[in-house]
Structure formats: C-alpha cells, structure tokens
C-alpha cells in the first residue's frame, strides 16, 4: 500500500479539476470491480455488484490548492484559495499546475507577519512579464503543493494525505474484498473541500441503504494540541460526530463490534471542526444511515501531512470486514422503540 499511497499523494487533483487523479485511481481499481464510470461532476464510481444491502463508500479524491485570479504586468500571479488554505502555510511553498508549470510563493513587504493574508501573497513562475506568464498560466488555473511523499519509518509524510490516504484505503479494501452479497459502490468523490459537493450528487444517484465515508481526521497527540483523544498509530478512528454529521449510532456500533471481534485497533473520534462526505450522504433523499472510518492525520492541510501505515492497515481491515459481512438493515432502522 506504500507504493499506492505515494502515487496517489503525488498526483495532481485540486477540487473541481479531478480528472487526472480520477484516471490514476481508475487504473488502480478497475481490475477488481464489475463496473467503473465517471459522472458529470467528475465523481468516479467503482461498483461491485451484489444482491444484498447497497452500501456506498465515499473517499474524496480532491485536494486543496490555489486558483489564479490575476497576472500583473511583471508576470507575478495573484491567487485565491481552493478549500482551507492558510497564508502562513503557503508562504515559501513550491506549487505546480496541471501543465507542469511550477512556481514559488512570495509575500509583499509587511510590517507585521500577523497581518499576512492570502492577498498579500503572490506566485512567481519565473516569467519576465505578463505575456510570458500568460503563455504558461491562465486566470482560473489551479496549482497544488509540489511535494514528494517520503516515509519516516512507518509513517508517511506528504501532501494531499487528505484524502488520498482515504482513497488508498478504499482501493485496497476493494482489491481485498472477498465474497460478499452486498452491492458496494466505491465512490471517489469530487469537491469535498468546497463543501461535500461530489458526495451530495453521487449519493443521490446511488441512493444506497447505508453510507460510509473514509477520510482523514485531526489528532490531539501533538505538543499543545487542543483536547482531542485521537492519536497517530492507535488504529482506525470510528467517527462519532463532526460538524457535518452525527454518525448513525447503529452504524457506529456495527463498526465497533467488528473492530472488537477482529481485534482491529480502533479509537473513537469526536471532531469539533470540519466535516466529511458522510455529512452530505446521510441527508440524501429520505436520509441514509451513515458512518465514517477515519485515518488519523497530523498537520492536515499542510504539505507535510503525516499518517501511520498501521492505522491505514487497520482502516482497510475494518472497511473490508464491514463490507463483507451481511448487513441487516432492519437492525438499523426503524430503531427499536
């Protein structure tokens, strides 16, 4: 899975422009499923047919980035954010566009670094003037961090672990998925970072009985971190709540039971900021009971996002076991009264 993760992490794919990452994922998964297709929103569906419960598992494949809004006469580029981008993190970054153009980010003279905002930053692609810059980059083009994935022991450091780590887990689980009656829709969704947009329309289309998302989550195990119990290396996290979803108690229970029975390391997660695709899935149509398997990740939305390979393995095992077992929907709803 290390190789897969590296490949996914280093592929270009900001929100709204996911064609390249979708192509890579398609290659990695198509031999293991019955059907693969793209929709108009760019979501990639990989379907394993079955007659049992219809489950949709979403992992978003988009990453954060910067979008060009202006090119000045000296060839410097101004930009805005795609998703949650901090100006402090962007300062000094090397970024790359879809066509391979690279650049470095500088800032205007500031008397106080605390006043740093995105509009005080600019991108320098080495162009001598507007004309030269315009040959390489147009207004509306999107750049992402340029960063190779490296391994520090069993921990991977790289860009876009949010959420290529989730994509890797979902691909791997689909590859290892044994016999199952369940109909599984693995959906690699778009535009999660802009507000769970790909998941909203894809789950409307799939209309599953049950929804799962695989995404990264924040941790509380770094120096002076806010109080949160999730730690790197302590296993897959089973989400209880974030800002977008309160996971269905029964789905959370089912995941917990599987982890206990198969001795898969797990931890519970209550995230007080942020959301994930399950937030959109569970509100689809008449409502879809949903849960989330999270991969603990440090330094989220920086080019140095860190995940633990053991946690990834635990997440694969938990997901694959969940999808393989019969899922009795009448045990989920109506809830016993």
């Amino acid at each position: 899975m290390k190789e897969l993760l590296k490949k996914l992490s280093e592929t270009y794919g900001p929100s709204g422009r996911e064609d390249e990452i979708a192509r890579v994922i398609r290659e990695e998964i198509q031999d293991y499923v019955d059907e693969v297709f793209l929709d108009k929103m760019g979501n990639l569906f990989a379907v394993k047919k079955g007659t049992g419960t219809k489950v949709m598992v979403a992992a978003h494949m988009d990453e954060i980035g910067v979008i060009i809004t202006y090119i000045d006469k000296n060839g410097f580029l101004r930009f805005s954010n795609i998703g949650g981008v901090s100006p402090f993190i962007m300062l000094g970054q090397r970024v790359v566009f879809a066509n391979g153009t690279v650049g470095t980010i500088g800032m205007e003279k500031l008397d106080d670094i605390k006043k740093l905002t995105l509009d005080k930053l600019y991108l320098d692609i080495g162009a001598k003037d507007r004309e030269e810059a315009a040959k390489l980059v147009k207004i509306g083009d999107i750049a992402v961090s340029q960063r190779q994935l490296v391994f520090a022991g069993d921990r991977a450091i790289g860009k876009a672990m949010d959420n290529r780590a989730g994509c890797a887990v979902l691909i791997q689980a689909m590859r290892e998925l044994g016999d199952t009656n369940n109909e599984v829709y693995a959906v690699f969704t778009t535009q999660e970072e802009l507000g769970l947009r790909g998941a909203r329309t894809s789950s409307y289309r799939v209309n599953p009985d049950l929804g799962l998302a695989v995404d990264v989550t924040l941790v509380g195990d770094t120096p002076e971190a806010p109080p949160m119990s999730v730690e790197l290396g302590k296993g897959a996290a089973i989400k209880v709540k974030d800002n977008s979803v309160i996971c269905h108690p029964k789905v959370k229970e089912m995941l917990t039971k599987i982890a206990e029975e198969h001795q898969i390391p797990y931890q519970f997660e209550v995230l007080t900021a942020g959301g994930t695709d399950a937030g959109a899935i569970h509100l689809t149509r008449e409502g879809i009971p949903s849960g989330v398997i999270s991969i603990p990740c440090r330094y989220v939305h920086t080019p140095g996002e860190m995940v633990d390979m053991d946690d990834m393995e635990s997440a694969v095992k938990l997901l694959k076991t969940f999808l393989t077992q019969p899922i009795e929907m009448d045990k989920i709803y109506p809830c016993a009264l």
């Binding site: 929709d39 108009k40 929103m41 979501n43 809004t69 805005s80 207004i139 509306g140 329309t201 289309r205």
Partner: peptide, 21 residues
Amino acid sequence: FRRLTTAGTDAGQISQTHEGI
C-alpha cells in the same frame, strides 16, 4: 473571467440538484 472566488449564485444550488447539473 470573474476574478473573485467569493459570493454565490443560483448555480450553487442548481449544480447540486439531483445527480448534479
């Protein structure tokens, strides 16, 4: 091109309706 990435329009809702428009 509109050179601002904030504010919203009806397209925000329309594009998110049904299977995506």
